[in-house]
Design a protein around this nucleic acid. Structure first.
Lengths: 152, 152
DNA sequence: TTAGTATAGGACCAAATATGTCGGGATTTC
DNA sequence: GAAATCCCGACATATTTGGTCCTATACTAA
């Protein structure tokens, strides 16, 4: 629970891979899949989804494949996850949804809605570029923590 | 994905309910289940889990039931979720885990580990007491909706 | 001491979701 | 036109979740 699906993982990995090879005009689904040992057909579909959502540009034919539709800095992890898994809510019954009709139950939702926003916020603040630059042993003490404290 | 299981939801609701009835020495699983329309036997097991993890105190026999083991302020949503669903990681391959052996794949993990910590942090900062005080009719107009609608 | 009310927990099933595969079609390049 | 590639719906499998059932045990009160 509270974890990304493999599809989302794969998608992020693929985008990261593309971001790391800006020189190449396009990479085929198969190339990326092989690079990571991901089932090719599955990755293909994921990349198709990302294309449909405007995060990638695709090109059929020989030497075809996928390329980032925008600069890696302009694509957030949030967008990727959203494109692949659809909108997510930490609780099933976020306000506005028609769940929770039977039960006047979910008095839980209100505070958790804010958790939801916080998570979305963090994910939005992470770009594909951030994923590609994985050599940053420093710089991680403070940042995120601040965020958290704030929103509550 | 990225959402709480129903069990965790139920658990939070139940604790909230207990927090709202500090007067009563104990509430049975059935009472709580009825209050929210939750399957009684399922909730029973959830409460058993919470008891095993020290968040509740249980008492068998007539007029038995469950009560918070500590002040509602001292029980975080994080603990509840952890007790019910076990440790969660946003990625399957958090550093330190032995996953990702086959694939040198998950270069993704490092940045997402921080997301994970952030989420944990937020959840730790929310207490059962916070859930119980649900009367905050103001301050909720915009938030969630904007998020979702926009990004899609 | 016994009947009734609870918790404790194992085994199991059903439903939902996630993961992965297959096969046919459409595009582009050579 | 052949090869490489994207596109996409249908299907099959695996895993997780949600929920039930049954039995045992503990406690209370009459």
């Amino acid at each position: 629970m509270l974890k990304l699906t493999k599809k989302a993982d794969y998608g992020l990995m693929a985008l990261k891979y593309l971001a790391e090879h800006p020189d190449l005009a396009a990479l085929s689904a198969k190339e990326v899949a092989d690079a990571y040992g991901i089932p090719a057909q599955l990755l293909a579909k994921i990349l198709q989804l990302l294309t449909k959502h405007g995060l990638l540009r695709s090109h059929a034919g020989m030497n075809g494949g996928y390329a980032l539709a925008r600069d890696a800095r302009q694509i957030s992890a949030y967008e990727v996850i959203l494109a692949i898994d659809g909108p997510f809510f930490i609780t099933s019954c976020i306000k506005g949804a028609k769940s929770c009709e039977l039960t006047p139950s979910c008095t839980i939702k209100e505070p958790l809605a804010r958790v939801n926003e916080t998570i979305a916020g963090v994910l939005k603040s992470i770009s594909i570029q951030d994923l590609a630059e994985h050599e940053h042993p420093a710089k991680r003490e403070t940042d995120t923590q601040g965020l958290v404290a704030l929103t509550l």
